[in-house]
């Protein structure tokens, strides 16, 4: 049985690991904003290069990153596949009688580059962080307390329920269950998930009871409150300036 971890393991440099989690989250937001404002090809390639640089600098493991990128590429390809044929513009080439426009190809490329750059940066900046730290960041950014508590408890129980699910799967395997495309499989999965739900709810009731008997009054105490240092200001400023560079390039060269 493998235990489940949400975040991917990265060999972060120590200065990066010591940063306030809010810095990392805000940097990811600024990166996304910059990417959404870019619409010229070359500045976007620069932004993607920046994202790649981040993944390398922050010690991400390529195998994991590529696995996660591939999972999201399916939708991406589906979205941009028809753009060359549906965007009006100068015809470039034709497949099976459909004319592809030059502008459409460019737009498809822009969206592909943008999406990949954002995912890479997000995984590098935030994806390697412990989920609990992300919860601290959310709390520190003024997200309502109940929502943060919901987040923290969800993170806690994903691991527990994943193990529970694995246990149930092992039990099914021991009874010679083989998944296929048939009603038996789907009904069995339904029963598996139903069992998981029933056990989750029982667990939720035990947790409620446990919280009550420890005098829970609606306030959770975060163990290590986040603290903003001067280096956080410096890193965030530097990151924002860096992410703005492609935008300025676009501004000067293309004028939008």
């Amino acid at each position: 049985m493998t235990s489940f971890s949400l975040q991917h393991q990265a060999l972060e440099p120590s200065w990066f690991a010591a940063l306030d989690p809010r810095t990392r989250l805000l940097a990811a937001v600024f990166f996304t904003l910059s990417a959404l404002c870019l619409s010229a090809l070359w500045p976007l390639i620069a932004l993607l290069a920046l994202a790649l640089l981040l993944t390398i600098l922050l010690g991400c493991q390529w195998r994991l990153i590529i696995k996660r990128l591939l999972a999201f590429e399916g939708f991406m390809v589906l979205v941009v596949l028809f753009l060359p044929f549906t965007v009006a513009g100068k015809p470039w080439f034709a497949i099976a009688g459909m004319e592809a426009s030059y502008q459409g190809v460019i737009q498809a490329l822009v969206i592909l580059l943008r999406g990949n750059a954002v995912v890479l940066a997000l995984l590098a900046l935030v994806g390697s962080m412990e989920p609990v730290k992300l919860g601290y960041a959310l709390a520190g950014l003024g997200i309502p307390e109940k929502l943060v508590q919901l987040f923290m408890m969800t993170v806690r129980y994903i691991g527990v329920l994943f193990d529970e699910h694995q246990r149930l799967r092992t039990a099914m395997k021991a009874r010679a269950f083989v998944a296929g495309s048939n009603w038996h499989t789907w009904r069995s999965y339904g029963h598996l998930l139903g069992m998981l739900l029933v056990r989750s709810m029982e667990r939720a009731q035990r947790i409620s009871g446990a919280m009550r008997c420890r005098g829970f009054n609606g306030k959770f105490h975060l163990l290590t409150p986040v603290k903003w240092h001067r280096r956080d200001t410096a890193v965030l400023t530097l990151a924002v300036l860096l992410f703005l560079l492609p935008l300025e390039w676009q501004w000067w060269q293309y004028g939008f």
């Binding site: 993170v155 129980y157 329920l161 709810m201 939720a204 009731q205």
Partner: peptide
């Protein structure tokens, strides 16, 4: 707060 654990455990369940 009574229903907080319930919502959290179900969110985790659906995630899994």
């Amino acid at each position: 707060y009574e229903r907080l654990p319930q919502a959290a455990v179900l969110a985790a369940c659906f995630f899994v």
